[in-house]
Design a protein around this nucleic acid. Structure first.
Lengths: 202, 202
DNA sequence: GTCTATACCCCGATAGAC
DNA sequence: GTCTATCGGGGTATAGAC
């Protein structure tokens, strides 16, 4: 049996056979591509199976359900983004880390238009959306204010709200670039950074 | 025959029988409620039909497809929002109109939590999303800068981008309030307004 | 351990009876 | 005008071949 996703439950993360690892990776890859192209609704199990050269049932042998597969595809697409942003943030000094966050996130999505739709789907997802996506950025902003030597008691903006606004702004910019390729997301990111700096270091 | 949506095509907007008008209104109403509660995917034709006391096929008699019905529900939910924001903006002087836009939009969504999910679905919709939602706000901001006496040649922010960011920020704030009712969207709106004023009247 | 065949039920859509 | 009957297609579950 292989139908248990090793990441679910608190069980020992069972070893996966080589063929299973390969199949899972292939299926995730295929799914990311199909969702990027046709959207979630337009990507049926049959299409995924056909693209992978196996049957629907075989797909469901490796993943409990279509939803589990889609979830894995979302995770896969998010991982690349998170790592990229993580590297950019780490190699920036604290004061500029929030700006690096914004720039690297917009930049990554511009460079990987294929992944973008999947990432958006992953974030927009109706269900698992309570992931406190704002917190990492809020932490960066708090650190940046400290690095700037801002009086910790000084009344500043609510960083949760600021992070939410910035996150929403990034989404809007990237989405606009998707719909209108002429629209320059990098210039837009600079404007978002300017807005952010204005609020953070007033 | 009644299967033509009067708003589509360029035809004469045929008269609708009273029962048909009533049915359409009822179906839209039911659909808005169900989508608000269970999301689009969780709202099948059968459920809609059951809630309306008729059969699936009868629903499809009044609306060409489920999508057409959902579209009508979206329109219905959006109308209330647009009218509310429109009134708020009109009764504010030009300089404060962008702030009124933000406040009234967040306020409406807070006061009508039922409609909120539907409105978000309408705006987030994968298909008809090229609606230039940013333009009205961008126009308000341009007028506000003029009213403030800003030198028209002065280098200001790109208003399309600014409007996109503000729109995305509103979405994020409202969504957060939906997921976490404790989160105060009105205070957040004030912060967004502060950010906006900082950029507009620098 | 990996996969095919098959069958099930729900969904959206259509044709045609009443 | 309204509904029943039905269809193709989607996701899922199981039996069992290899």
């Amino acid at each position: 049996m292989a139908r248990d996703d090793p990441r679910s439950q608190g069980q020992e993360p069972r070893r996966l056979t080589l063929t299973e690892q390969a199949r899972r990776a292939q299926l995730i890859d295929v799914t990311v591509r199909l969702i990027a192209e046709h959207g979630n609704a337009g990507t049926s199990l049959a299409r995924i199976a056909e693209a992978a050269g196996i049957t629907k049932a075989a797909v469901l042998y490796h993943f409990r359900s279509k939803d589990a597969l889609v979830r894995a595809a979302h995770e896969s697409a998010l991982t690349g983004l998170v790592e990229h942003v993580g590297r950019a943030v780490e190699s920036a000094d604290a004061e500029r880390a929030p700006a690096a966050y914004v720039r690297s996130m917009v930049g990554y999505l511009r460079e990987h238009p294929g992944h973008t739709r999947v990432v958006i789907a992953a974030v927009t997802d109706e269900d698992r959306r309570s992931s406190e996506r704002w917190r990492p950025l809020a932490d960066l902003m708090a650190a940046a204010r400290r690095a700037r030597g801002t009086d910790p008691d000084a009344r500043g903006p609510d960083l949760r709200t600021t992070a939410l606004i910035v996150g929403g702004g990034i989404d809007a910019i990237v989405a606009e670039h998707l719909d209108h390729p002429d629209y320059d997301p990098v210039a837009a990111a600079e404007e978002l950074v300017a807005m952010l700096d204005g609020v953070l270091f007033s």
